[in-house]
Design a protein around this nucleic acid. Structure first.
Lengths: 226, 226
DNA sequence: TGAATAGTGTCTTTCAGACAATATGCC
DNA sequence: GGCATATTGTCTGAAAGACACTATTCA
């Protein structure tokens, strides 16, 4: 029988564990995903989600945050566990179980810190992805579905917005993610009735049309609506 | 650089991976959870969720299904991944990341197959749990919250129901999980308007009151409502 | 003044929730 | 007939959805 003294850590053959992160951001009015070009076998030359092996003493959430910080320099972002993918043959090297996270940040927060890294990183529109390594296509699908449904019953859209923003900006994000137009009056009614937005006294100026009032979120924390 | 030929599987020190299953069932009108009494260090004598290490070639879903089958002989059940818990110190033995699942089955399906096993297994009401090993209290809380919210926007209650059932049975389950009474007329209206139930031509007889019409689900698969 | 986007209100429909009386079988 | 549970419909309030015109800024 196991005791603290005779417990043998190496008794079981172990799968490897990785954390992969699906980093969403809005660029040029499109929802885009950060991908890294793989430089080594397996799937050399294919694009893949940023990720890496989980070290022995690192929390999963921390590992996911670290991955994103290393790739694009974003520190404060919305980050949530998505799903764990563990199909035995998903990685040809060995058994690799990956805990997938998804993250949201406005593109204005992105610092391109990969100068010193060898890796090639790039943002791709969710509806126009390149050939992907492993089961990363599936992971992106699951993540996109989660995002699409969760913006409908929570305030996580704050993750894609800068500190201050107009209601039209918010509406554009919803329309991009849903893939359809929304009625402006109904959208604004709904958005404001959540009670989570605060109007600032600033307006966007310099554009050739009526300036928009800017809003901010009272709290940048996840709140489930209703 | 890695190639297929020189890739070294043992290069990284690896956390262990387990699958733990939260098996919910209704017994004596209460929502109960299956727990196993631990016979060895760590947490000897504490109760824990059934679970075990993931073998190198076994799918996570399969591992979860196997755990439940070994403990209570239930084969066809509702089973869904819940969340992955990976806090570095959650297991005193070594770094153990657990992929938690939750499962639903009616108590009528349970075969007690632990006769030959040394383990002591028992069902506990969710609102009256014993001292639990590891972070299993947290896992049960997360699972219970998922169940509570998901019965509201899907048909997963089928997992807790036998093949044929009366609407009152269904209502009792909802009331048990929500912890409050529901209006009978509104509940039946809502339940039937989902279009997922089929009335059979059978009734419960032998009880000292008007017999209830029995219904069954058109399909025993997860459907999201709305 | 024309182009471009911001900002605003009403009506209709749908769904959730409150609420009570009759029906049926067994004893 | 008495007991226990099954079965059924209406009204009200809230929220979602359809729908069009005026306001403001800059070029």
């Amino acid at each position: 029988m196991d005791t603290k003294e005779n417990y043998d850590v190496s008794k079981f053959e172990r799968p490897s564990v990785t954390v992969d992160v699906l980093f969403f951001t809005i660029i040029e009015g499109k929802l885009q995903v950060l991908l890294i070009k793989r430089a080594a076998w397996p799937f050399e030359g294919f694009w893949a989600l940023p990720g890496g092996f989980v070290s022995m003493s690192e929390d999963l959430d921390k590992a996911a945050a670290r991955e994103i910080f290393e790739e694009c320099g974003v520190k404060d972002l919305f980050l949530e566990q998505l799903y764990t993918f563990g199909e035995p043959k998903r990685d040809p090297r060995t058994r690799v179980i990956t805990v997938a996270y998804y993250a949201l940040a406005p593109s204005t927060e992105i610092k391109h810190v990969q100068e010193d890294e060898v890796k090639e990183a790039k943002y791709f529109p969710v509806d126009n992805l390149p050939k992907l390594a492993f089961d990363h296509k599936k992971i992106i699908e699951v993540g996109f579905e989660r995002l699409k449904s969760k913006i409908g019953y929570s305030n996580i859209v704050f993750g894609l917005l800068p500190k201050a923003f107009s209601l039209s900006e918010v509406q554009n994000i919803y329309e991009t993610i849903y893939g359809r137009k929304l009625d402006k009056r109904n959208f604004r009614k709904w958005m404001l009735s959540s009670g989570l937005l605060i109007a600032t006294n600033k307006k966007i100026s310099g554009l050739a049309h009526r300036p928009a009032l800017l809003y901010k979120f009272a709290k940048r924390e996840v709140v489930t609506l209703n």
